[in-house]
């Protein structure tokens, strides 16, 4: 399957591990990612805070380029902010004639044009879960990640795209949980899995950001996660690079490596760790990865959920997924 690919600024350098691992797993999964030529920054969460029309024009240049370059109608963005911006621009251009007219005029000044709806923006997780499917992913697993306890972390911008249908539940997404299970790893309970990492607050109001990061690290640690798997460069950066600052501020001692879910997929597919960008994380994942065993763990029920005889029955949950 051929897809347009929009890496975004983070994947060029800071989140290079995300890019490298995405490329590494694409081959066994028969995915062809064609990068949009000469793409520009999506504006992250900054441009829209300054000026509306330029913010949408900036994003739309990418959509126009993607539509023009004959790389297929599906455009995959691994970065959550890029994904949301691209998808949101396409959505609002289609539904707001005044915005579209102004953006059209701006694009025209650069000799470009874009018809909303001609590009289908997907997050990488969406592509893997919906288009590739759990079965095909499971088929590629050669070295199951037995015994590795992973907290799946979704963040905000993928499960909750405003005003647009998300492919997963905005409050309790489960697609990444299921994917990681297919890799043989143990998914730990991680109730804060869709909570905020602080976003750009690390730059603006460190107090706000460190408190939010602390909640997440504490929740993962309390549930005995060996590592947190993310789908977003911003989440990775905040939880990884600011873990020391959290420890210093709150007197804690967290050492939880933060890796991209694609790195774990690559590892399970038998791809060497080096090719997957392992080692670039600031909190080293080495110790955690050493826990991976060749034998499948005995299925143990979460102690929280074991019912004592005197206890009252829990409400029956509707079959998930």
């Amino acid at each position: 399957m051929k897809y347009g690919y929009y890496p975004g600024c983070s994947l060029e350098r800071n989140a290079r591990a995300y890019h490298d691992s995405t490329m590494a797993i694409s081959k066994p999964l028969n995915l062809e990612f064609v990068e949009v030529d000469d793409w520009n920054c999506c504006g992250a969460t900054e441009y829209i805070a300054l000026n509306k029309i330029p913010a949408f024009a900036l994003i739309s240049r990418n959509l126009a380029l993607a539509a023009d370059q004959n790389i297929g109608e599906n455009l995959v963005a691994p970065c959550s902010a890029c994904y949301l911006n691209l998808k949101k621009a396409d959505h609002y251009l289609a539904e707001t004639p005044d915005l579209k007219q102004k953006v059209d005029t701006a694009l025209e000044a650069g000799g470009l044009q874009y018809q909303p709806g001609s590009i289908n923006v997907q997050h990488l997780l969406e592509t893997l879960v919906l288009d590739v499917g759990f079965e095909a992913i499971e088929e590629q697993v050669q070295k199951p990640l037995y015994n590795l306890k992973v907290a799946p972390y979704y963040g905000c911008l993928v499960p909750r795209p405003a005003a647009m249908d998300s492919f997963d539940d905005p409050e309790h997404p489960i697609s990444l949980d299921k994917l990681i299970e297919k890799l043989g790893a143990t998914v730990v309970d991680f109730p804060l899995k869709a909570q905020c990492c602080g976003g750009h607050m690390t730059q603006i109001s460190e107090d706000t950001a460190l408190e939010l990061i602390r909640h997440l690290l504490k929740n993962a640690a309390d549930n005995e996660a060996d590592m947190i798997a993310t789908i977003c460069p911003m989440c990775q950066l905040n939880l990884d690079a600011y873990q020391d600052a959290v420890n210093a501020r709150f007197g804690t001692d967290y050492h939880i490596p933060i890796v991209y879910f694609t790195q774990l997929m690559g590892l399970a597919f038998g791809i060497p760790a080096k090719k997957l960008g392992f080692g670039k994380e600031i909190v080293s994942s080495r110790a955690a990865l050493e826990k991976i065993s060749d034998e499948a763990p005995q299925p143990v029920k979460n102690s929280k959920k074991v019912q004592k005889t005197s206890s009252l029955p829990m409400p029956i949950m509707i079959e998930e997924g």
Binding site: L58, R61, K102, T105
Partner: peptide
Amino acid sequence: TKIKNISQLKSILNKAKELGGAA
């Protein structure tokens, strides 16, 4: 890193700023 066609982007953004008010 600089994109190749930065002049194109600048034209687009300058036009957008004309249409979109201040800042």
